[in-house]
Design a protein around this nucleic acid. Structure first.
Lengths: 324, 324
DNA sequence: TGTTTTTATGAAAACGTTTCCATAACCCAC
DNA sequence: GTGGGTTATGGAAACGTTTTCATAAAAACA
């Protein structure tokens, strides 16, 4: 409640001096400083961010926009963003957005009205989005997808899928199936390409793409397993996420199929459930926290007008558990 | 970049009029309004939040402080908070905080410096925290714990535990054990009281309290199961969280114990893993999203100076799956 | 001691709004 | 027309800061 004026009056100095005590302490005399500090403490004075920022025209807040807050994948990214942002004195505003509708204008508006300085956009989809005119001069860093040639963080999905296939081959599995999502194209494409490159056949009929809504996963994996049971089982199933893998394993086990003896199953992302599921799920881990940190670093540098890289590629690592 | 001044000059009206076009459109003539709108659009004018708020002394941002972002429980609460906040035109700033250290002063400071209007605090612990002087006149709503007689959202853990015990009794299980956390007192206490009330004996030696750090759970549940195997197995184990239940089931299954035939296991919270685990975990669900919404509603009303309730109690419901 | 340099402080403008108060413009009735 | 009552607009203060410029006080030097 107390303003700089109150402190100034009480300490019998000008408001300019009080301001300097907080912003350029070195140029004000020790005596004055002590007087101001003690008065400020007594009055419970905290500089008003709004007024400071109005003057400086910097807010100190960045937005992390993610599609799904109940997904560890995105949460870890946000954790990384927060970690780094904090070290630079920025706050993080978290928001949801729908990758289908790509409704970022809400966030663009927030930045334009100076309630935030920039946006980290994570969709988890490797798409190429269309230009949004208003977003032209808004600082944005994207993770995974590309957008208006804004700087972005890229994860090498091809390399990741190759690692999985290599591992399965080393275990003697050749007949592989792929279970992915309708909207995530890169992993499916990578699977196809790597298989072709290795000269391996795979049955397109047992390669399926799910709707991406999480609540649909139990039903969809069940349907998928029912389909599989009617055909000859593959030796391995590569899933585009740990949840798909978990669902698939669950239904296969119910049919009496032994994992991994009869069928090996792999996931993607290494979320919490991969470790705790029974059997533990072999999966691919992206350095999520580092990705978030790097995104925040790029964004803040961009906001503060420094030079930054246009694209940063992260490598993945395979985490071997019991399911494959 | 364009300010209200630019628009006013270009539209040949005063800045007061431009301001009114956005805040009291009904009192400005149609002709003027149209002129202003068209100029504003051409110049790409968006009112500057900072200046608006400085004047109005309201920010339009609330903080959701939670201990663990990778826990669905808290994420759902935040989802509820966001949902409601959005409907009232507020943004949500998400932050972590350590329930052990109770380091809320960071957030109190943000509010005091007018970068946010208030705080929703969710710890998931039913503790009574000590007074923090600076937080005196800061709008805060807590979920679960009590703090400085700030308004709070309460979940009826006693009733919840009673429901679990009733259900287990109805299945003929009498010898029950409890696996909880060191810091969460209410569920453990409720278990003890209800058992006593029903005149049921329970072996204190097989009631254990874990460290609450999530990464410790696999190791701690393993240790617990090892301990159990040395004694006579109980007929049922009531766990204070789904993760504890999942860990316990996993290790019991590895020892060849059949769930639920030999031992029934129940969880708490109904997070994602409870549904997807094999076997599905019988658990207790709190209306998390509603709790978040209600917390946001209380907080915003508090911020805007309306009358609010001091305490709101939510009921739980039991979700029956395969583990019990 | 008087002059110059350094250091510490204050006055006031500026940031982009909202809003109170005053006034100009209009309309209608007489 | 003149007057009384609306209605639409402008001027200017205020919100709480930062910062430039000017000046007073102190220190350094001769």
């Amino acid at each position: 409640m107390a303003s700089i004026k109150d402190v100034a009056k009480e300490a019998r100095v000008s408001i300019a001096t009080v301001s300097r005590v907080y912003n350029n302490p070195e140029i004000v005399s020790k005596k004055t400083k002590e007087k101001v500090y003690s008065v400020a403490k007594r009055l419970g004075y905290t500089p008003n961010f709004l007024a400071q920022n109005l003057k400086k025209s910097v807010v100190g807040t960045i937005i992390a926009a993610i599609p799904d807050m109940s997904n560890t994948f995105f949460i870890d990214i946000v954790l990384g963003i927060q970690d780094y942002a904090e070290s630079r004195g920025y706050n993080v505003l978290m928001g949801r957005f729908d990758p289908e509708k790509f409704n970022i204008s809400k966030y663009v508006k927030i930045v334009k009205s100076k309630a935030a300085d920039g946006i980290v956009l994570a969709t988890g989809h490797n798409r190429y989005y269309e230009t949004v005119a208003e977003a032209e001069d808004v600082p944005i860093v994207t993770i995974e997808e590309e957008f208006m040639s804004k700087p972005h963080i890229y994860v090498d999905n091809f390399e990741a899928v190759r690692k999985v296939i290599d591992y399965l081959l080393s275990k003697g599995r050749k007949r592989m199936a792929f279970l992915g999502y309708k909207t995530e194209i890169e992993r499916a494409k990578a699977f196809e390409l790597v298989m072709k490159e290795y000269g391996l056949e795979y049955d397109k009929k047992i390669t399926w793409k799910c709707d991406e809504r999480e609540e649909e996963i139990p039903a969809q994996t069940k349907e998928y397993v029912d389909l599989l049971m009617k055909k000859e089982l593959p030796e391995a199933i590569v899933c585009a996420s740990d949840l798909l893998a978990a669902g698939t394993i669950k239904w296969l086990a119910k049919k009496g199929v032994r994992i991994p003896e009869d069928v090996a199953v792999t996931g993607f992302d290494n979320v919490e459930i991969a470790a705790i599921f029974n059997p533990g799920i072999t999966t691919v881990e992206q350095p999520r926290k580092s990705m978030g940190q790097e995104a925040a670093r790029m964004l803040i540098n961009m906001i503060e007008g420094h030079e930054i890289a246009k694209k940063i590629t992260f490598q993945t690592k395979i985490v071997i558990r019991e399911s494959a």
